[in-house]
Amino acid sequence: MEDNKTPEVYRKSSTHEKRALTRREFIMKLAIGGGSLVLLAGCGAKVTSVFDTGSGKQIYSFIAVDYSKCTGCRTCEAVCTAYNNPLFRDGRYKSDLGNPVHANIRVHSFNPDVDVPVTCARCDDIPCVNSCPVKPDPVTNRRALYQSGKYDLITNDTDRCIGCGNCVSACADSSVGILSQNPATNKPMRMCTLCGGDPKCLEHCPYEALSVLRVDTAYPYYRMSPEDIAEKLNKRWYNLNV
């Protein structure tokens, strides 16, 4: 059996210390001891985009999963969908009512018991965006799939999107394969929003399995498909080649 230890890259992650701390203190605490962690501000604190100052090249943040801690409980799916895609809303109260199938994080379950949550890897070469056949808008230079906002999130302009599914195939072919076509509109869904800087999945994962990390291609399962990740985990945990 290979070692089943937590890789160094997960040094800090969501933690139950939050129970004793306010959310703000929690984020501060993580930020102070952050190391490779890039934290997105919550609680109204000022948010700055994340740059690799050395090269000037833009590097994004993404939700990374520590598969040795994940239990497959799908709390992340439930809270992601409640925040980002609730089925019913009631005034200013977030409804907590979403169906996990609409979540931007997706837990793939396998037999033998392996659960593989995946979410957008924030690829630096944005294959999804580059595959979009819609002609860039002359003013904004945006296709129907583009990056926007302070986190340069993958965003779909549903008015201009033709529902061709190219982005979905591109994501599957050269990255995680998180995107899928909305069954009703054919337009892409499951683009992680980082929840406006306060990731719900990370906050509620009961097992501290999730982190916000600066993209690092050396990350052990980076941009791998859930099936490939499951294969690796099967080997590592059960010494199986499935």
């Binding site: 239990t71 097992y207 945990w237 059960y238």
Partner: peptide, 18 residues
């Protein structure tokens, strides 16, 4: 080798192994 949980459960009483 692994603890796993039912839907939205923070207890993970199930264990799998080889």
């Amino acid at each position: 080798v692994r603890d796993f949980a039912c839907y939205c459960c923070p207890l993970a009483c199930k264990k799998s192994g080889a």
